[in-house]
Design a protein around this nucleic acid. Structure first.
Lengths: 275, 275
DNA sequence: CCTAAATATCGTACACCGTATAGAGTGACG
DNA sequence: CGTCACTCTATACGGTGTACGATATTTAGG
């Protein structure tokens, strides 16, 4: 399977698209479409069929026009994707207990001075949920050059979750980046596992059953004793080669623990300058 | 810019390629090529020009044959990439102080019972270095279905770094996944920043100078006070919109701190079963 | 009202991709 | 030698993003 991966378009054009006011033209035939409509349609297509299913012709068909018509509204596919990325960051999703029990009874945590932890956890789960809703986000390069209004608003929301903890501004930025990076890496595993299941038509369990004999045959448990031991135990426990959702829950707590260590240090010695 | 992203090929065919003994054919003309040579060439092309520059025709040209000749050795492009992935995990790179000072003087750390930390840090830096050497790895789906000999050996090496810490097998697997996921997310930021620089021809500093006025104009510091404050401070400190390499160094220490919390807990109460 | 400018849309075309298919050339074995 | 297995090539198909030119539509200016 080959999926498309698209980076960033011309930053100047994208920024104009993202920030510019599209004033309606004064002359010529009335536009049948709008950038918004095109972007919404493109997001629907990408959500349903992945980035590989997103083509200019496909979006145009969906809208009842030819592919070239889209180029009246959008400089190119890369810039279209840039706007798509900014658009899906517009919603403020409520996680509402997405995976396991939501922390409704964690009021005591706030009393410990760790209320920030709930906020960071919510941030992470929001990102997690967005990636699950729009898996194609994993394939697009959200590099800095394109910073739309919704991404900017999200950046602000994220930062408020680490404000007032005694961290420097740099540290606040770094903590937010840490969470983003981890969630990105973790969610990627889940989505790839899901895609693999969909593609091969076999669940993780079936895969395990199919390839376990081959692996055992080729494995050489003497050479790789640790992998052998851990692999068999975790394979039995997961009922699959891996359990990425569980890995996310586990890893998230460890990352938050690591941040807590930093926060405690800063609370104890507010002005120690070691980044 | 549009880059290719390739997932996994047919697992059965890939596994055969990865594990099977390719016995030389008994009849017919002598093969000019070999899977190894094709894979090596493909890796060189991908390293130099990215996954978007990797095409069957391109590799074939490099080898002086037609594109279709490759299909004698390899079932398809996806399976070729699967073998490429396994191949680049063959080396055991020595980080040798890749970013900052290597921990040569950290013998005292071992006395603290935190020698594992050095091992995990080395693991993370090895992965980090591999991604920098083969950035196209970020675009390929290394989902479980394809598990080659070198990946398996690496899995074993990784696990030994968390062996003997009192963790359960599941926890060992989860800790390794955590490190992998974080490194993946962090290195992605660096590579995307580098690609953005290369593509736009402007450094992060130049980007900052170009778009700072536009952002200030559109920003509304009253609506987003936190982002405004942090953005300006970090922008000034980085001299760029972000500093992903620094983010990696910072985040890695936080992640290791989080793992340390877990290890300490397990050392204190060896048999508490809460995963 | 009429014309001319501006705009939207369409049809065609190009270079590229992965690869299916068919055929031509090569070399070892019966 | 003939046959059969095998490698390699040539051609072709349907897909991609998008450059280019023609056509249709709307409105501003005379």
């Amino acid at each position: 399977m080959t999926t498309e991966y698209s980076g960033t378009g011309d930053p100047k054009r994208s920024m104009e698209l993202l920030w510019g006011t599209q004033d309606p033209p004064r002359r010529g035939p009335k536009p049948k479409l709008s950038v918004q409509r095109i972007v919404r349609t493109a997001i629907e297509v990408a959500d349903a069929e992945g980035l590989s299913g997103l083509s200019m012709r496909r979006v145009a068909d969906e809208l009842g026009v030819t592919a070239m018509s889209l180029y009246t509204y959008v400089p190119g596919k890369a810039e279209l994707i840039d706007v798509m990325v900014d658009t899906v960051h517009a919603d403020h999703p409520r996680p509402a207990g997405d995976q396991n029990g939501d922390g409704d009874g964690d009021a005591d945590a706030d009393a410990d001075g760790t209320g920030w932890r709930t906020g960071l956890e919510r941030l992470a789960r929001e990102n997690w949920a967005r990636y699950l809703r729009h898996p194609w986000l994993l394939q697009v390069a959200t590099s800095l050059p394109v910073l739309g209004p919704h991404l900017l608003a999200k950046y602000d929301r994220d930062l408020t979750a680490v404000d007032g903890l005694g961290l420097t501004e740099i540290e606040m930025d770094l903590v937010v980046s840490l969470l983003h990076d981890y969630v990105y890496g973790a969610v990627r595993s889940v989505i790839e596992a899901a895609r693999a299941e969909q593609r091969t038509g076999m669940t993780g369990e079936q895969w395990w059953e199919t390839y376990a004999p081959l692996l055992e045959q080729v494995f050489d448990a003497d050479r790789y004793p640790t992998a052998s031991r851990v692999g068999s135990v975790s394979g039995a426990e997961y009922g699959a080669p891996s359990d990425p959702a569980r890995a996310f829950e586990f890893g998230l707590q460890r990352v938050l623990d690591g941040i807590e260590t930093l926060v405690r240090t800063r609370a104890a010695e507010p002005l120690a300058g070691q980044t």
